[in-house]
């Protein structure tokens, strides 16, 4: 029961974008820090990331009739 609730909660977080920053950090660790050329790169701060993420999300047709 608790496990089900947890996975449901995860879906809600994922759908709403609540965990977007965590996923960005994971993506960053996988793709940037593994690469020796980019090892000195720092990920964006949560506030900065969220700003860019929101701008990105609202480009193009996102809502219909």
């Amino acid at each position: 029961m608790i496990r089900r609730f947890k996975s449901f909660w995860q879906i809600v977080r994922r759908l709403s974008g609540d965990d977007a920053y965590e996923r960005y950090l994971e993506h960053f660790a996988r793709h940037h820090q593994a690469d020796p050329e980019h090892v000195h790169c720092q990920p964006l701060s949560k506030k900065e990331f969220f700003k860019q993420w929101q701008e990105e999300k609202w480009r193009g047709v996102k809502r219909c009739c």
């Binding site: 879906i11 994922r14 759908l15 996923r23 993506h27 960053f28 793709h31 860019q52 990105e56 480009r59």
Partner: peptide, 18 residues
Amino acid sequence: LDNGRDFVPTNKWIVFGH
């Protein structure tokens, strides 16, 4: 083209929701 921003492979239920 995965760039962690707009191109992101996503769980199918999440895509369905969006």
